[in-house]
Design a protein around this nucleic acid. Structure first.
Lengths: 203, 203
DNA sequence: CGCCGCACATGACAAATGTCAGGAGCGGAA
DNA sequence: TTCCGCTCCTGACATTTGTCATGTGCGGCG
């Protein structure tokens, strides 16, 4: 019997180590590599060519979805899945379009995770039902491409002038986009608009 | 030999379960209870009277520090420690003044955590060196009580009128506090000021 | 007691922001 | 081809902020 070769990437040593130990107890799984950052995950994947890569969404260097995208190009035979602590709807959509085959919150048990890894390895997809429901109820972004882009530059209360410069648009245009985006989101001002859009993964 | 009785509280089942398994391997530690939320942690502590409570900082219901405060009152013999993913300096200060004896990031290994649990149980304190350095370099809050209070109401881009109402102050006064607070924090506007203050745990 | 810092306020001005109207180019769908 | 929506712009206006000057009352401290 040949075991499923797993790559584990998570910056929290506590979790990664514990998880590696628990998954290793399953006799059909084998943790062949561990990584604590996005770039390291890529390097380990190249070196060990795992069957399944289990990636944390939040990692220093490059987030899980970014790593998954690159892996898909470099190692098409390697299935990828994402685990995350507090999953926002938009991340799920982004992950799926990056070719990720599994998306689970960290609230599942290790045993359950092992099952999902097997299932993903067998070619199936798995998305946590609750996250899926969130994603569906959040619906599609009502924002146009430019509105979303401008909102993205409007983080941490940057002044309009700065946003305009970064987006290479005139200040008036930026104001218009910000205004219409806020209207679509039902927000009073751009700051709450940014927050809402982020929560729903629309930026 | 009597083993150290440990309570584990973390809303992420993946971590809690894995951790429980790994800590259980240490022959002088015994995980006697697990909880997935703040209130549940309190209830389990009352029922099982552990020697050491290992609490996640971010939990639904009540955060780790809140739980620690209540535990200190109800079960003085129970030592408390906090584990956290991304620790902000202010949390550390808050935790220490709540009587927490250990403060560690989730980037440590399970073995290391076990050592720290033992040390805390023996009556020592332990604070992660890196977090401690952050806390020290962040220094004390330069904000007056009112400035901090007003900043606290200024979350998610609320308009000044709303802040004034919530703080029962005049709008002019609110603007003044916001302005002076932003100046002290070196921020351009109140939104970045709020973010900075939050990062440093000054709100 | 007199000084100083803090809490709280007012009023006024400048700058940033939100809102509205309107106009030009451009690509896709009817 | 005509129409419509998206992108981008300009200009003007009302509102919201940030900033400053200035004043009062209070409590602590030398």
């Amino acid at each position: 019997m040949t075991r499923v070769r797993v790559l584990l990437a998570d910056d929290e040593h506590l979790i990664r180590g514990a998880l590696a130990a628990l998954l290793g107890l399953e006799d059909d799984l084998e943790v062949v590599a561990e990584a604590a950052s996005g770039p390291e995950a890529l390097a380990m994947a190249r070196a060990h060519r795992p069957d399944v890569a289990v990636l944390d969404l939040e990692m220093p260097g490059a987030d899980g979805v970014t790593v998954a995208t690159k892996l898909r190009a470099e190692l098409p035979s390697c299935r990828t899945m994402i685990v995350t602590s507090h999953g926002r709807p938009g991340h799920l959509k982004r992950a799926l379009s990056a070719g990720v085959r599994g998306f689970v919150p960290k609230t599942v048990s290790a045993r359950r995770l092992a099952e999902i890894i097997r299932s993903v390895h067998a070619g199936n997809r798995y998305v946590d039902p609750e996250l899926a429901a969130d994603a569906i109820s959040a619906g599609d972004s009502p924002l146009t491409v430019r509105e979303a882009e401008v909102l993205g530059f409007a983080t941490d209360g940057a002044p309009v002038a700065e946003i305009a410069e970064r987006a290479a648009l005139s200040q008036g245009t930026v104001r218009n986009y910000l205004s219409s985006a806020a209207a679509k989101l039902g927000a009073e001002n751009r700051h709450t608009a940014v927050r809402l859009a982020r929560e729903r993964g629309w930026v």
